[in-house]
Design a protein around this nucleic acid. Sequence first.
DNA 1: AACACAATAT
DNA 2: CATATTGTGT
Length: 441
Amino acid sequence: MAAMKDDNKRVREWEAGLPSAADLTPLHHSLITRVLARAFCIPTNTTPPTTSDVLRASKSTLEQLQQKASSAFTLPSFETYPCYESRTGGGGERGGGAGYAVEESLDDERGGYEGLKRSREESGRRSVRVTKSPLKGVWDGEKASERDGGASGSGSGGNGNSGAELGGGPGYYWPSQGAMPEGSGAYGTLGSDQGGYGGGLEAGSESTKGASLDNKSRKLGDTESDDVDSGDCPDGNTARTLKRPRLVWTPQLHKRFVDAVGHLGIKNAVPKTIMQLMNVEGLTRENVASHLQKYRLYLKRMQGLSSEGPSASDPLFASAPIPPSLNPSPHFFTNHHHLRAESGVAGPSFSPPAVPLLRAQQTIPPGAMGPGIMGPGPVQHFGGFEHHPYNIGLARSAAQQRPPNIGEHRDFLVNAHSGAPVGAAGSPPHRILTLFPTSSS
DNA sequence: AACACAATAT
DNA sequence: CATATTGTGT
């Protein structure tokens, strides 16, 4: 860089890709420093920017942006996020030998998933449970494009129910925690910002208002890990044992969960299987196990109070979609694509792949858990937007407004179902889906 | 190894 | 609170 000093030493080749004056917004123009401007071949404007210059420039920039934004709205040009498809390698059961294949197979391509896998030590018994892997990259906004999310629709085959598709697509939220391994740009792009906890941003926010970031990024400080790492990772293996961020069971995620359980039949619904069916990247067996535990409790409760005062019993739960309750596994995957929608109770159809979204901690999701077993018909309300995962941000804010105070407490709530898994029995279903949280009560 | 669960921890 | 982790027992 020494060369910088002298203009004469400019290396044209290097300048090829640099932005030119035309590429910059007025605002940038006035903010750019002379040195930089020179380096970028931007006509250096003599007078240093004054406050008013900046103001003026920002104003015009804003206008420009607004224009762009409005036009962009219509375009489906958002980046597509990857829709993950099968997480299990092939349909094969890795059970016997492969063991963890799952984790590994998943991967890649999809997005930044890969990262380290879990550092599990099998040594002694359970006592030593080491913290597992850090969240894997989850998706990366950028190169995401490869998989057409859009595929959406079609996905694999058809999803027959047209009507069924519901919107909603947001994915699951994962709180973001700084820790990603090297490159995952993933977080950043989406707004979730890397280290930061999105903090209070609403879901939607991410995309739109980037401005309000006040996250407290806690990069360095990072207490917690503290000594922990010291011991392990003997060789400075990069793999830091980071903990994965806590999973937030958003309605969408929960829905997938419920669908999976429904398909399997409560009897066969065990964590591992559910996890596989859900096909959500990054989801761990324990996440599912934990949720399942809760879900069962919920079901139990519901059963008990079956007659219940809707009103009262638990104001918490709202609708009741799937009472897989005693519904052993009727239809495995054989999905006949019939219409299923029967009484609210029947099985949910499958759902598409999920797209995990990273989010800040506990903030929005009115988690809804609730299948309903109960009497009053299932409430099926949902918004029928067709969302693709990516819109979620917007979608949320726009479509799903969040009334200032809904104190929701809804535990399990389910919304809609979606298409059927076309996949053959062995193969994992791929699809996309979207659903929407119903806001009720 | 996987589960189910209860008890705790965060 | 909602999740995660742990401890046990199957």
